[in-house]
Design a binder for these strands. Sequence first.
DNA 1: ACATCTGTTACGGC
DNA 2: AGCCGTAACAGATG
Length: 263
Amino acid sequence: MPELPEVEALRRRIEDGALHRTIARVRPGNDTAHIEVPDAAGRKRLEGRQFSRATRHGKYLFAGSDGGPWLALHMGMAGSVRLYDDGDAQPDYARLIVEFEGDRRLAFRDPRKFGWARVIDAPEDEIAARDLGPDALAIDAETFAQRIGQSRGAVKSALMAQEKLAGVGNLWADETLYQTGTHPETRGTDLGDGKLSDLHTAMRRILTGVCDTNATYSDLPDAWLIHRRETGRACSRCDGTLTSEKVGGRTSYFCPSHQERAA
DNA sequence: ACATCTGTTACGGC
DNA sequence: AGCCGTAACAGATG
């Protein structure tokens, strides 16, 4: 699930259903031995407060309590948040549960345990500690061109490097490269100004587009790569055939016909 | 049984 | 000193 648009959808979920309700109790969920969730002291800091805002930086999600600490969440490979009511079944793989006064509950769930939840003083601290770059929807064209264009490795790896810009992962990096006709292994330093500008524009359009659907992929245009991430499928932009290859350790789908290596 | 997976980090090499 | 590439992390799923 969780690259920038998917995390944005979760942020909205919190914004729509978990703000301005008094937190009665925060408790660990199931099987938390190998996952970082707040200890009793951290959980206590949230009790009695209300979340007043939900923010996001790249793939990191933050729920801020009024005058108090923030709940910071990272979804890892498969995490999510879910709202439900007491009386409903507790969601599977719930690792942390926020119980509001009344029936409302917020669960942080993480089947694969690559995510975490922590109570922090301010999002800026977490962003600085992880050395995250600007959010991918906030980075300007010039900074983008500089950061990606100076990268000596594969452009795909650069797009996914959270210190350069935060929020792009495997799926939307592939989509950006596909829609701009860029081979994933092109070196950043081989990209011309025009291509860097195109990449920035396409990345923005793609991330914004996915956010607009609330990360519902079936609502995205048929021509997008997201619907054809499979070797042997027909390219929607030329007469090529899609193929896959490991780039930066991640499976990368692309069209060898129209995704060129050079600028 | 075996491979795969939408992320991050520690570590080794250059 | 940095930058880059890879392996490892844990567990569900097909």
